[in-house]
Computed example of a mutant assay.
Amino acid sequence: MRDLRIGIIGVGVMGADHAERVVRRISGARLVAVSDPDLPRATTLAESLGSSSAPAAGTGDGDAIRVIEDPLALIGNAEVDAVIIASPGFAHAEQLMACLEHGKPVLCEKPLTMDTESSLRVVEAEHKLGRQLIQVGFMRRFDPEYAALKQLLDSGELGRTLLLHNVHRNKTVPESFRSEMIVRDSLVHEVDVARWLFDDEIARITVRAPKPTGLVADGVLDPQLAVFEMASGAIADVEVFVNFQVGYEVRCEAVAEKGSATIGLGVDVLTRRAGHWGGAVPDDYRARFGTAYDIEVQRWVDATARGEIDGPTAWDGYAAAAVCTAGVQSLQEGRPVEVEMARRSEVLG
């Protein structure tokens, strides 16, 4: 079979990282086109990767990568078999609908869309096609540590899982990263983690904020503390702090009837020198979850070749959007908010 021909929409930090990944580390795929409003950035990336000298991976044989200004034109291009969407969230709904219209498999970075209603429309449109084309980029499911934790909890060795404790800290974020974005763009990962590890829906969410750090703009509530109440009665809590200053840190502890398990401690390399001991804290998510992204994209490519998806679905993206919508309301109103979702059986049959 020929390589899957991939087009990438949005080549900012995440999209450029995916482009380099497809070219250099993913087998069975070839990057053929990119699209971004910043044409010089897209052109520079396409030229640098298209002239790569790594023939064993993707376009590394020197194939030209096209720059297509209009993202909808990229989706409709006959030379593009599948699409990675790494554009801003506000553009996702239109681009996802175009992928469905053209029958193009798509790996969409979170969020699926910016609100519950448009996410549900995407789910319904995909369902009408009679086949799944959308995979959502919740890459933590592919991280070896998270995967091992999931396997342990599912084995029943520790009994029923009762609690999850999560920490999600970034070194810094842009000044444009406002309070609501902390919920929709950061906390959303823990929303998916909780749903996945518990295999259950979040019924109620509470998001509160202490006195904010003095290192953010006026009006930004950072850090935040969220509590998820699962439909089964289990509970998860999350600390999100996106201007932590130290580095990128993600931890998860599951507490069960017969024990607990913790991941993300960063103890794989521990040094002792000059009267100190410790290890390194990465600057951003690409270092911590680089392997997870590699696994995610490779499995997406392999599944697409089989006519399947192998990861979080459009429904998972819709569920996360519903929880985050309730989370923003909780943050604004200072109270628990019930998560309003359509019944899965009524939407998907």
Rank of each mutant, 00 (worst) to 15 (best):
G279K: 08
A236K: 02
S260H: 12
A254M: 05
R288T: 14
G307V: 09
G334W: 11
A256Q: 06
D237C: 08
R273M: 14
C324R: 08
A261T: 03
V255W: 05
V216A: 01
A256S: 15
V250Y: 04
A261L: 03
A254G: 10
W300I: 06
P282W: 09
G259F: 11
A319P: 06
N243H: 04
G219L: 03
V297R: 11
W300Y: 13
V328G: 09
A292R: 11
V227Q: 05
F289D: 15
I309Y: 06
I263H: 03
V250Q: 05
T291L: 14
V323Q: 07
D310E: 10
L265M: 12
D302W: 06
V216F: 03
Y248T: 02
G219N: 04
I235Y: 00
S260V: 04
I263M: 02
V297D: 09
I263V: 12
G266E: 10
V301W: 07
D268M: 06
L215F: 00
K258V: 00
S232I: 00
M230R: 01
G219K: 06
Y293V: 15
R272T: 09
Q245E: 10
S260F: 09
G327E: 04
V246Y: 02
E333G: 05
V238A: 01
R286G: 14
R286A: 14
E296R: 06
D237M: 06
V240F: 01
V281Q: 10
G259S: 07
A231V: 04
A287M: 15
G214M: 02
D294R: 15
A261P: 06
K258A: 07
T325D: 15
L265Y: 03
V227M: 04
M341D: 08
M230H: 02
R272F: 14
W300D: 08
C324S: 12
A236N: 00
M341R: 15
E338W: 07
A314N: 11
E229L: 01
P312M: 06
A226M: 00
V238Y: 02
V281N: 07
A280K: 13
V246H: 03
A326L: 08
A322S: 13
D310N: 13
G214E: 07
L225P: 00
A231P: 00
R299C: 02
G278S: 11
A319I: 05
T262N: 03
R299H: 11
T313R: 13
A287E: 15
D218Q: 05
T313H: 08
V269K: 12
D302N: 14
A280D: 12
H276Y: 14
F228D: 02
S345R: 12
D237A: 04
E249Q: 04
M230E: 01
E296A: 15
G219A: 03
S260R: 13
A314I: 07
I235H: 02
Q245H: 05
E308D: 13
V328W: 09
G233V: 04
R251F: 01
S345W: 07
I295S: 14
E296Y: 12
V250M: 04
I309S: 07
